[in-house]
Design a protein around this nucleic acid. Sequence first.
DNA 1: ATGCGATTTGTACTATCGTACAAAAGATCA
DNA 2: TGATCTTTTGTACGATAGTACAAATCGCAT
Lengths: 236, 236
Amino acid sequence: MVRKPTSKETARKPNMREAILAAAEELFATNGFNAVSVRDIAQAAGANPGSVTYHFKTKDGLLLEIYRRHCGPMNLRRSELLAAAKRVRDLQDRLEAIVRAYVVPAFTSGSDLAGGGARFTRLRAVMSAEGNEVARKIIAQTFDDTSHAFIDAIHESLPHIPRTDIVWRSHFLLGALYYSLVTPERVSRLSRGEADGGDAASAIEQLVQATVAAFQAPPLDQAAPTRRRTVATTKT
Amino acid sequence: MVRKPTSKETARKPNMREAILAAAEELFATNGFNAVSVRDIAQAAGANPGSVTYHFKTKDGLLLEIYRRHCGPMNLRRSELLAAAKRVRDLQDRLEAIVRAYVVPAFTSGSDLAGGGARFTRLRAVMSAEGNEVARKIIAQTFDDTSHAFIDAIHESLPHIPRTDIVWRSHFLLGALYYSLVTPERVSRLSRGEADGGDAASAIEQLVQATVAAFQAPPLDQAAPTRRRTVATTKT
DNA sequence: ATGCGATTTGTACTATCGTACAAAAGATCA
DNA sequence: TGATCTTTTGTACGATAGTACAAATCGCAT
């Protein structure tokens, strides 16, 4: 059934509000928050600077709305995939499924909103690097629950690993994930064209494979207890 | 022998040029390039905005000088440690030594310049996220040689892994490394205080241990060939 | 067609940005 | 001490930032 739009939802151009959101998302994700002006965004969206103020009041409000748009759907998707992963019997398979449930929504469209979750994940990476206050608050509120759920699930499938180690390795996973989206061309360059850093499918498989192995590494306490630790403090 | 400073090197205050560099490094690393104004830097350094222009001409020039200061010493240190690591006999030990040679200089002071390599590495992470042009050029010029040297060394100690996989996993290592320096407090928070994300020694050990395991993961081609791959494309 | 609320436009205001530049101050050596 | 060079200071200028606001415009129900 096709709902008739009320006057509250109508807009002159197809959807200027969405166009502004998409343009801002793209520009913020590639250049950072402060490097992009409201005028840049408006121009990229084919809109007037005043329209941005009208729809989102402030530049911070625009960023806030971008987060609001994506956080819910992406975390919902992750929860669904995590629930499915937890039902996997084999422990090794389950671990891989859990990691995949964490990684896949970050790369692919978690909500089909304006073209994909990869762009939003990259945005998160950049905001995190810049120490953006608006983003920091939302992240802590919205993503920590999800992170804990994944950490717990991983911990259950790797009971002999201390929770502290799981946290560290999850952190490394997120860092690797972010960096893959921030500078994919570096992979292409260093592999001399043999790999395409921008290919999401490759990135996902490589990341899942590497991360599963990292999680399965022996815990730090008992790591190589018989071998002399190579101390890397050298004199120059 | 104590060299008498020439008039070209003298300065009224202990070393205003260094103070500006240190302040800029700190501010850029925590807030990004565009969020920090020349006036912010001058104030943090106890200097006059004009002094920044005098010493570094432009804001880009200041960033450039920060890179020049650190790149050489850090890569030199890495080369030394890598050379030492390559002499390790046991393949497992050698791999760990190589990874450590890559990680340690990024965390600890690579040059004793203004307080440590961790700050500079964090700066690199933030500039990379922001897509800073000045940084991008220097990185590609200066660090790719080092990266290739490490990739080759790792490949030699893991000959059965395709080079492409090594590249991906090195990329993940750098991403994890960056992220550990960008948001260490997230580790503390998620571990509920059981771990200190800001502790360099812990970060290094955790990162080395996890990364070595990641490098040792089976190559993608032959990964779990008998198991059905869990395809994470779900319908909503 | 007309009136009305929603949206877009155009413009302007203030603040701050990077940077230039002349003057002041300090250091060095004949 | 006084001349000279280096460094610091203070100020100013043009550009651009975020945002506010009134006028113009559009879509739609009546």
